[in-house]
Design a protein around this nucleic acid. Structure first.
Length: 422
RNA sequence: GUGGGCGUAGCUCAGUUGGUUAGAGCUCUGGAUUGUGAUUCCAGAGGUCGUGGGUUCGAGUCCCAUCGUCCACCCCA
């Protein structure tokens, strides 16, 4: 019986990992460019944390969490998202008290769902959060960070959708009115809508069932329940985006699936990934820190799905920084093999950026050159006993960049540095 | 959780109405006068046909189950 990976949990092979490394490198640079510091968190938290943060009646908590009891009887879960852990750590270490914090975080998250294009049971997120700043300029900053990331990765074709849920009181008032309205028409609703009516009534607005849709038409609109502060906040966010030249679309049906959002919510959506088109999504969650037992502290942030981002990069054929070998060192003959071994280390000492593969496992020169070609190297270095005796090496281009020539070992580092722009 | 498509060599796939030792291309290894790749030619290696049952004289082919995978619903990143 062959042991396979767990369903929906994928390996990233060496041939594909350069895209991951590229994304992480660019993201870390972008986040630092805005003054965000990286927070590293455990993958496992107490189940209670997610029940309180994400919402006990959400799909994520109700049926998608990997929960278990450890040997000491603790109720634990693999994290289904990153924000809850960020806040837990922030409260625990006292960095959310009466101050501003700009934080980012990355790593695997887990949801027990049916795998599909762009949806996996273990997937990876990049998370950016700003705490302690209630003003809408931070909503704009968070959105701008994502836009900057697209720019630096060379990606395009996103649509930015935004909406507002208003302050907690206005949101609560609308929610109550909405439930009230839907209850009056409960008999005409489909089964899904009736179930969600109590758990997540905003989701009913999203229904695609015609009969339900008809009822939704007449439902109380959140816009009518927004107080002045909510409207002013949203207007300021829109003005900020316009000042930065970031195009957006207002989607009144945009409702985040997690319970904690207030005011601004947004999604970066693409139509190039099939059904799972949301690559990055987030919003403001002014009540969440307090809800988790912390001080009254506001927050804004987004989560970004790395797998979806990388799928989209492939679709758009975005160039990725390569980590392929640049140089392959062919060697044959006892003396030459020893010289080559020593010089491969010397070259790596002298040129820390050099990616050099030393031939191993013997083989004819012909087969060594085949390996050199196959690994993607630009140059092959050849040392036989003739070259070893002369203290030289043959430098041969594998990509049609000039004729082969002989170079003395002492000048080799300078030659490679020049040709490879190291 | 629901529905549909697909599982044959490392990869991409053929495989006739069930019928002898299951094929191709790519990759890999070796060779085409001694030490020169990517082109060409030759040879070789590599598969319990996803797994387990069943029908049959006989199953890669038909039936059932199961696992995996892909797509959609749902949900979300």
């Amino acid at each position: 019986m062959k042991i396979q990976s767990v369903r929906g949990m994928n390996d990233v092979l060496p041939a594909d990992s350069s895209a991951w490394q590229h994304v992480h490198a660019v993201a870390a640079q972008v986040f630092a460019a805005y003054g965000y510091g990286e927070l590293r968190l455990p993958v496992v938290e107490r189940t209670e944390l997610f029940k309180r943060a994400v919402g006990e009646v959400t799909d994520v908590v109700e049926k998608e969490m990997y929960s278990f009891e450890d040997r000491g009887g603790e109720r634990l879960s693999l994290r289904p998202e990153l924000t809850a852990g960020v806040i837990r750590a922030g409260i625990e270490h006292g960095i959310l008290f009466n101050q501003q914090q700009r934080i980012w975080c990355t790593g695997p998250v887990f949801r027990y769902e049916r795998p599909q294009a762009g949806r996996y049971r273990q997937f990876h997120q990049l998370d950016v959060e700003a705490f302690g700043i209630a003003t809408p300029d931070t909503d704009v900053e968070i959105i701008a960070i994502a836009a900057q990331l697209w720019k630096r990765l060379g990606m395009s074709g996103f649509q930015l959708q935004i909406n507002t849920l208003g302050t907690l009181p206005s949101r609560a008032a609308h929610r109550a009115a909405l439930i009230d309205y839907l209850l009056q028409h409960e008999a005409a609703l489909d089964e899904d809508a009736r179930r969600r009516l109590h758990t997540n009534p905003l989701r009913v607005l999203d229904s695609k069932v015609p009969a339900t849709q008809a009822i939704v038409e007449g439902a109380p609109s959140l816009l009518d329940y927004l107080d002045e502060a909510s409207i002013a906040h949203f207007d300021a966010v829109k003005a900020g985006l316009e000042a930065l030249g970031i195009a957006y679309v207002i989607n009144p049906r945009l409702v985040r699936g997690l319970d904690y959002y207030t005011h601004t919510v947004f999604e970066w959506v693409t139509d190039q990934l099939g059904a799972q088109g949301t690559v990055c999504a987030g919003g403001r969650y002014d009540g969440l820190v307090e809800q988790l037992g912390g001080p009254k502290t506001t927050g804004v942030g987004f989560g970004l799905g790395i797998e979806r981002l990388i799928l989209l990069m492939a679709v758009q054929q975005v160039p990725v920084v390569s980590n392929q070998p640049q140089v392959y060192l062919c060697r044959f003959g006892a003396e030459a093999e020893r010289v080559a071994l020593q010089w491969s280390e010397t070259l790596r000492d002298q040129l820390p950026g050099l990616r050099l593969v030393l031939n191993a496992g013997g083989g004819s020169l012909k087969s060594q050159l085949k390996r050199a070609d196959g690994c993607g190297a630009r140059l092959a270095l050849i040392i036989g006993d003739d070259e070893a005796a002369a203290g030289a090496v043959q430098v041969k281009s594998l990509r049609g960049e000039g004729e082969a020539f002989t170079c003395s070992l002492t000048e080799l580092a300078a030659e490679l540095s020049r040709r490879l722009a190291l």
